[in-house]
Design a protein around this nucleic acid. Structure first.
Length: 495
RNA sequence: GGUCGAGUGGCCGAGUGGCUAGGCAGAGCUCUGCAAAAGCUCGUACAGCGGUUCGAAUCCGCUCUCGACCUCCA
């Protein structure tokens, strides 16, 4: 199935056949979060999308090295050089060290990823762990005449780069348009050109996160870390670079310029961009105030939420659209997703219980053909730029067949053992391994036990001692003992 | 203002020239002590206007509406 994979490359704006530089190895870099506060649901969508991409590539037997960074250097807000960055700001607010902030929200990020069954990357490098490399790349760019230093800060010289390259090729911009569209900002006279961006920024007096460099104490520019870490762990040329649509410009554009400027190589071959999660048609973002946290979602505690939604419901909801489309959040859609997910989860439960039994029915060639077609369709859908929405559609079609077996509408022997096995394994593999949708435990064992103790008590009152002994024995097998108290029946763990 | 993208049945959401995704909601049937689950059947939608074509949701043009990026953002 491997040769069929196509991906939409933002760089060429075309769907291309996926051909890794060094098959079966695949290098994938995804821009991670800035850990100055909790990740919200919109952030989750991007990481979930790349999680499925990572899972599917692995399913196709590619040897994937997935690198996703943690941005833990505080970057300035906007171009205003007022010396305060997000992490420091937060540190002062919470009365913590900047690195405590970084750790706190990195932990939160990891918790959230685990909650949604998003696999950890193979390497998760942090910006602060690669200061030396960032200084090195800055030096290289200076040596090549693609950067200049002004009073302890170093800027990338976009115009110089653009003489022999196209700055703006990813986001479809022309340098002259960019220059003419740039607003005049105060306090940035340091730059030769408003489109230039910082590689290294001089730290002002109060700036907490600072490192020594050949240009004095300072900190790296935002775009630089990704260029440095992708190059370090994946090489000057690698296969996939991903991130949210909103990073296309300027972040990814700058990355391309830095990578190419520093290494003379092309950097990423395929650029994949995930679209935004919207609320009432508007992008979910912290600054708009329409974002909510995964924890609020699970608790149903946000004013936009009618009720709580489980992580798998959300995962199903998100995968029901294509990663490159915007997805609008609504309670109606989430409720529908909850039911859809439950249907799928019941299927997962069911396949654990079904086992092939010869029942002498005649072969049903039509059913066999249908099932085989659906199984192939799962691959076709995922091969077509990771179309999870279509894949889920196929999984529901497959589930209908599985349920038909279960209810006896379709007999085992009609499809034969081989097709049965294929049906079950395809359903399971795509649902669990590729889409990462797993059965959510929602049984409260204690309340189930209460039902049992009630039944026990009823049997005892009716003097049905056979039943009483049976319940007692079965619970004992599970390591539980029943205790007849004066006022009630209680249970305890067997000592 | 510039660049790019989107408008699909009651709702969500795939689909990019002919082969009517799928989920939710709704209607009917089967099964059934009741109920649920499940299966089967049904609704024939593509913002508007014009064009290309034997044929368009899908291509082209115009109009309307919405969004993203152009500043930190997944």
């Amino acid at each position: 199935m491997r040769p069929g994979l196509k991906v939409y490359n933002s760089l060429s704006k075309e769907k291309e056949i996926f051909e890794p530089l060094n098959a079966p190895y695949v290098g994938m870099y995804v821009c991670g979060p800035t850990v100055y506060s909790n990740v919200h649901l919109g952030n989750v969508r991007t990481f979930m999308s790349f999680d499925v991409i990572y899972r599917y590539l692995k399913h196709l037997d590619f040897k994937v090295r997935y690198v996703r960074n943690i941005t833990d250097v505080g970057h300035l807000q906007g171009d205003e050089d007022d010396g305060e960055d997000k992490i420091s700001k937060r540190a002062k607010l919470e009365n913590l060290e900047p690195m405590e902030i970084v750790q706190k929200y990195t932990n939160d990020f990891h918790d959230v990823m685990a909650m949604f069954n998003i696999l950890p990357p193979d390497i998760e490098p942090s910006a602060t762990g690669h200061i030396i490399e960032q200084i090195e790349m800055t030096r290289t760019l200076l040596e090549k005449g693609l950067a200049y230093e002004v009073d302890g800060s170093v800027y990338f010289d976009v115009e110089a780069y653009n003489k022999t390259n196209h700055y703006g090729k990813l986001s479809g911009r022309k340098l002259e348009d960019l220059i003419s569209n740039t607003r005049e900002l105060d306090g940035q006279d340091e730059k030769r050109n408003p489109v230039d961006f910082a590689l290294w920024k001089k730290a002002t007096k109060g700036h907490l996160m600072r490192w020594p460099s050949p240009w004095g104490d300072g900190f790296p520019g935002w775009h630089l870390e990704c260029s440095v870490m992708s190059t370090k762990y994946l090489g000057a040329n690698f296969d996939i670079h991903g991130g949210g649509m909103d990073l296309k410009f300027p972040h990814h554009e700058c990355e391309i310029a830095q990578n190419h400027g520093a290494t003379d190589e092309e950097g990423a071959k395929y650029w994949l961009h995930t679209n935004m999660l919207t609320v009432n048609g508007q992008k979910m973002s912290k600054s708009l105030g329409n974002s909510f946290l995964p924890s609020e979602l699970i608790a149903g505690s946000h004013e936009l939420l009618d009720k709580p939604y489980s992580p798998m419901t959300v995962r199903f909801f998100m995968l029901q659209s294509h990663y490159s489309s915007t997805l609008d959040f609504s309670n109606e859609a989430l409720t529908a997703a909850q039911k859809g997910y439950t249907k799928l989860a019941n299927g997962l439960k069911l396949i654990g219980e079904l086992s092939y039994t010869e029942d002498g029915a005649e072969k049903n060639e039509k059913a066999i053909k249908q099932i085989e077609q659906i199984c192939n369709n799962c691959y076709f859908a995922m091969n077509d730029d990771f179309n999870t929405a279509l894949t889920i559609g196929h999984l529901f079609n497959l589930l209908k067949k599985i349920n038909s077996i279960h209810t006896g509408n379709l007999k085992y022997s009609e499809i034969g053992e081989e097709v049965f096995d294929k049906m079950i394994s395809t359903f399971k593999t795509f649902t669990v391994n590729v889409l990462g949708l797993v059965e959510e435990e929602r049984i409260n064992s204690k309340s189930v036990l209460n039902i049992l103790t009630d039944l026990y008590k009823e049997a005892k009152d009716a003097k049905d001692y056979d039943k009483v002994d049976e319940i007692r024995a079965k619970l004992k097998d599970l390591g539980l003992v029943l205790k007849d108290m004066k006022t009630k029946v209680d249970w305890a763990y067997e000592e």
